[in-house]
């Protein structure tokens, strides 16, 4: 009963808001890739490396803003490298993605041992984000516990999503991105440079994954552990796939998976083994993929 009760407690909902932020940030940028017809499993490494460099930046300068900048730059550089490999050097996207993910894991662990002499850096003296206190909602009982004292990036996530939505559906840029995803040849004939727009989409997704990574390491505790992104990059991918590149729908799925992560947290604090609760977000993704694709059953035939 206790387990059911906490499902709607303010602690869980507060954590949902927090846990879904990196997913939503990532989705806002990756939507452009999805619409432009790019599948990118290297998102995971963008996030992981950004998380590491954000921590490093914050550790070196004692300033979380510069730390965030470090993370974003690292992720954008990675996105540029990925773009170089897949757009210009003819490398297979999947293999490149696997290579990036493994390099990311190797690089961060190597640097972690080199710089911090440990495989999990906590309390190294990096500065984490300040929480934002909003006096207006402080008087509303339920809302205050959920929305107050969250950090800047938590609020940035929905804002970025709305911006992404407007850009995607209300600007020429968005129309072009969507057009070239539907039919690259037609877009090219109409004078839209496919490579240019794919590059922009790639770099935008790199930047937002950078924010997501920075959020991972610099929110609440400033820490980095080996492989700390733990499949969140893949969740971003899956959410965007299910939402078919619509940032608002993507945010909805980001919230669902964030809720599963939050529930995992609160349930494990009540004594449910973390091994079990840890599975919830991943299973949720598979189940949602299953539900949203159930209609395809009729089309059974060609792969």
């Amino acid at each position: 009963m206790e387990l059911l009760r906490v499902m709607f407690s303010t602690v869980t909902l507060n954590a949902t808001f927090r846990m879904s932020a990196p997913l939503i940030l990532g989705i806002a940028g990756y939507c452009f890739c999805r619409k432009a017809g790019i599948m990118n499993i290297a998102l995971e490494s963008f996030m992981l490396i950004a998380a590491f460099f954000a921590l490093l930046g914050s550790y070196l300068t004692k300033n979380y803003m510069i730390g965030t900048l470090f993370g974003v730059i690292a992720a954008v550089v990675l996105a540029a490298l990925y773009g170089l490999f897949t757009f210009h050097l003819g490398a297979n996207g999947l293999i490149t993605g696997v290579g990036f993910n493994l390099s990311g894991w190797g690089l961060t662990t190597m640097l972690l041992v080199m710089i911090f002499h440990t495989r999990g850096a906590t309390n190294v003296g990096a500065v984490s984000y300040d929480t934002i206190d909003i006096p207006v909602i402080n008087s509303i009982p339920f809302i205050k516990d959920i929305f107050n004292n969250q950090t800047l990036l938590v609020w940035l996530a929905p804002i970025l999503t709305i911006i992404a939505y407007i850009v995607m559906y209300k600007t020429t840029f968005g129309i072009r991105i969507r057009a070239l995803g539907l039919n690259p040849e037609a877009a090219e004939t109409a004078g839209v440079s496919v490579v240019k727009y794919r590059w922009i989409a790639m770099l935008v997704s790199g930047a937002t994954m950078g924010l997501a990574g920075a959020f991972l390491s610099l929110n609440s505790l400033a820490m980095f552990t080996e492989n700390m992104s733990g499949g969140r990059g893949f969740m971003v991918m899956a959410s965007t796939m299910v939402a078919d590149g619509n940032p608002l729908k993507g945010m909805l799925f980001g919230l669902i998976f964030g809720y599963c992560q939050a529930l995992a947290l609160t349930w494990s604090s009540l004594g449910v083994p973390t091994q079990f609760t840890g599975m919830l977000p991943y299973l949720a993704v598979v189940i949602i993929l299953f539900i949203t694709n159930f209609k395809n059953l009729k089309k059974f035939g060609k792969i």
Partner: peptide, 26 residues
């Protein structure tokens, strides 16, 4: 899932890896 529902095997296998590690541990 791929054959009947056309769910990309890349994304399902990636996520099921995490499930497997935790499930075997559990």
């Amino acid at each position: 899932l791929k054959l009947y529902f056309k769910i990309d095997e890349v994304i399902t296998t990636l996520l099921l890896n995490y499930v497997a590690v935790l499930a075997t541990e559990y």
